[in-house]
């Protein structure tokens, strides 16, 4: 009897495996979280030094429009005004997302609802291929094709927000398209069947049922696209002109946080004001992507048709 008792009270092999599996998977997750915190710590420890060690006023950093950390600005403090870059980054991200979203969603609907066969055969491989093109190559095509096009059509020198928008549009299109298509594919089949059975046309089904059900997924797709646009450095840097001026219009040279960051980081010495100021830009990048995420999450929660799967 005791033997049976013992074997019944003992943990089964399966439950041991279960415990081990849970621990393994949890530690993987913990590792990722750790990495995020490490990055935050590193970036913040450098980025905050601008304000604590070099005693730059936070407000003058965010609202100043002069950027030349080596010299003194009009107010006697070092000229570290990041506003032109912040405006540039925001403008370029929003413009390219606005431009890319209708195209991406249209294509995704086509891929999933209208002609899945062609979608799978042509569109999907092409979009997946494009994700692998290095941003440098996009930048160079931008330089050779987009900049002259913008210069001849819209005037100006061709370098500016508009050229950056076009380049980013092409860059984020594949990502947003394939993620939107995933979101649409995840909408259960019976939603469509129910709608069609009620006598709705295909378009009505798409518009009134499928798209609504896929809103959170598609919003995520757009955020991913925006995040990529926001953080893109090498391609944008080639076509935006990198002038730390507030853009007057869409064709005047401007700059983004990333472009100034990549250009400057190699030319500054760790620990100096110039270097710290660049890390502060990196910190803004971090905080702004955090902000984006939270906003979209909020919208996603509100726009959700139903929660259960």
């Amino acid at each position: 009897m005791d033997k049976i008792r013992a074997s019944l009270l003992k943990k089964s092999v399966a439950s041991k495996i279960e415990r081990r599996g849970k621990i393994i998977s949890l530690s993987c997750l913990a590792l990722i979280i750790l990495v995020v915190f490490l990055i935050f710590y590193f970036v913040a420890s450098r980025g905050l030094a601008t304000f604590f060690q070099n005693h730059i006023n936070l407000w003058s950093f965010l609202s100043g429009i002069q950027w030349n950390p080596g010299t003194l600005g009009t107010n006697g403090q070092p000229a570290v005004g990041a506003l032109p870059m912040i405006v540039g980054s925001f403008l370029i991200t929003i413009c390219s997302a606005l431009l890319a979203t209708p195209f991406a969603i249209g294509t995704a609907v086509f891929m999933t609802e209208i002609s899945p066969r062609r979608g799978a055969r042509i569109l999907r491989p092409v979009t997946e291929l494009l994700v692998g093109i290095p941003s440098v190559v996009y930048g160079f095509i931008g330089l050779q094709v987009v900049v002259p096009f913008v210069r001849n059509t819209f005037g100006g020198s061709g370098y500016g927000i508009l050229s950056g928008t076009f380049v980013l549009f092409v860059m984020i299109l594949p990502t947003v398209t394939s993620m939107s298509a995933d979101a649409l594919n995840a909408v259960p089949r019976y939603y469509r069947e129910a709608s069609l059975a009620l006598g709705a046309t295909r378009w009505q089904t798409i518009y009134k049922v499928v798209l609504r059900a896929a809103i959170p997924g598609m919003l995520t797709a757009v955020v991913f696209g925006m995040a990529r646009a926001f953080g893109e450095a090498l391609a944008v840097q080639m076509v935006i002109g990198n002038a730390t001026l507030l853009p007057h219009n869409l064709v005047s040279p401007a700059s983004t946080l990333t472009s100034i960051l990549t250009m400057g980081i190699g030319n500054t010495v760790m620990g100096s004001l110039q270097n710290n100021a660049l890390w502060s830009l990196a910190m803004i990048l971090l905080l702004m992507s955090l902000f984006f995420n939270l906003v979209i999450r909020y919208i996603g929660r509100k726009g959700k048709l139903n929660n259960e799967r």
Binding site: I32, F224, R228, A233, L290, N293, R297
Partner: peptide
């Protein structure tokens, strides 16, 4: 945690 991971994914590759 999900938000954290999304932040990590939107981190610019420069950073």
């Amino acid at each position: 945690i999900r938000t954290t991971i999304e932040i990590l994914s939107s981190l610019p590759s420069v950073v």
